[in-house]
Design a protein around this nucleic acid. Sequence first.
DNA 1: GTCCAGGCCAGAC
DNA 2: GTCTGGCCTGGA
Length: 293
Amino acid sequence: MEKKISKNKNWIENFDPLEILSCGQAFHWDMEEDGSFTTVHKDQWANVKKEGKNISWIFSEKDQKEEWFSYFDLQTDYKGIIERIDTIPLMKEATEYGKGIRILKQDPFETIMTFIISANNHIPRITKAVKDLSRIYGKEIGEYNGRALYSFPNPEEFSKASQEELRNIIKVGYRDKVLIETGKRILSGEFDLAKAGSLSTEDLRKELLDLPGVGPKVADCILLFAYQRMEVFPVDVWIHRVMEEYIFGEKGSKKEIHRKSVELFGKEAGYAQQYLFYYGRAKGIGKKEKKPH
DNA sequence: GTCCAGGCCAGAC
DNA sequence: GTCTGGCCTGGA
């Protein structure tokens, strides 16, 4: 089952599972003791390990190279992207620091629900909620390193969850209601996941904003991580501070920062956002000082 | 005890 | 359209 990539290694410099999975776009993965990463996508899982210039894969089933290479976006030339967006000082440091980042092609339903949960929330709790949702309502899809792996529930499976269970067991807090409602709209086809992919970015954004629990930031994350709309620029508190302090040099509302960033980076804004976000967050750029107590 | 976190939403201007 | 406060939860 183990596959090693023998040719076309140009992308290896721009491929680091740690950076790809921990840069905030995905929540359904584990780091193993040997430094490898096990990640779940739809009803499949993969374990990937990078050691120097060697990358080894274990797939849940044979011959899944194509699917996983697509999931990890290995056909895109990130070196070229970095060269094109390296037009401002901080970006050079950011792309060097996070040069192994790639934007995953994630499942739309999982991305929508996960990023609704992510709003005003902490990463450990988001990760736990995603795992619990999968374990309780999803399917067991296999085992790795003695640990059972579960798929994220599809819309029908998710509809089995009650508001009380979401709040009391999954601990999504006040987001319980909007998760239920959005799940219903997707299951009924009122929001059509497949059709959504053929809409223009502007139209799809409007449709997403109609879903309960989805605001501008969450909509942009869904557009970027599930529908490959690379021209969007999700603005959260971190990227907001980075852009204010290091790129524009002046304060601005979320909307202003969003508009100016999209204008600055154009069609590759999503990539720029990921590099700046990962770098800014790792370096604690603009982080508020904690009050001693 | 108090504050805040990878925002959203309703209500007020 | 823009601004403000409240919100589950739990760790610092």
